[in-house]
Amino acid sequence: MTLSSKDAQTLSATQSPAQSKKAKAANSKLDLLSQNVCAEIDQWLAKYPADWSISASMPALRIVQDSNGGYLTTDLMDAIAEYLDVPAISIYEVATFYSMYELKPVGRHKICVCTNISCMLCGSDEIVSHLKSKLGIGFGEMTGDGKFSLKEVECLAACGGAPMMQIGREYYENLTTEKVDEILNKLA
């Protein structure tokens, strides 16, 4: 069980074993990020100065969230931290600060209803109660079939089309209860 002198010599490379830390860290979670996800993060990384990989934390969280059915887990955030080579807590800080990141499972369609002043003046209360009774859920909840979840959001800068909501990447403006029904019916 001993090494020959030659083995030991070639093995004792002057390279640090931790230099390839990225690939090797004990209990690495990097595998959780698919190649596509990494490639997409890389595109964003290219926008920032080389020593500012942390700048890509927000796009990375969004990309990973999108690829994970709309929400983030601690493991995924750890993987992002590892990928960007930043402390995990920095990623948690960002993920918990911004309202668009979800830390619990959400429906396939996340309905974000604005209730801020202009929408309120134009009847968002009615839209909200309609949605709540139609879906049988409150804010921050998800329908049993996992299709919809409902979220109250602050002004989305579409006050000219109040009341409004956002589902996925789409804005829906000048809502009425009928229009809401129509929109939801079209969603798979």
């Binding site: 602050e154 800068a157 579409a158």
Partner: peptide, 11 residues
């Protein structure tokens, strides 16, 4: 960033 409620011009 256009976040101030009532503002929707930059969009």
């Amino acid at each position: 960033d256009e976040g101030e409620p009532g503002t929707f011009k930059d969009r």
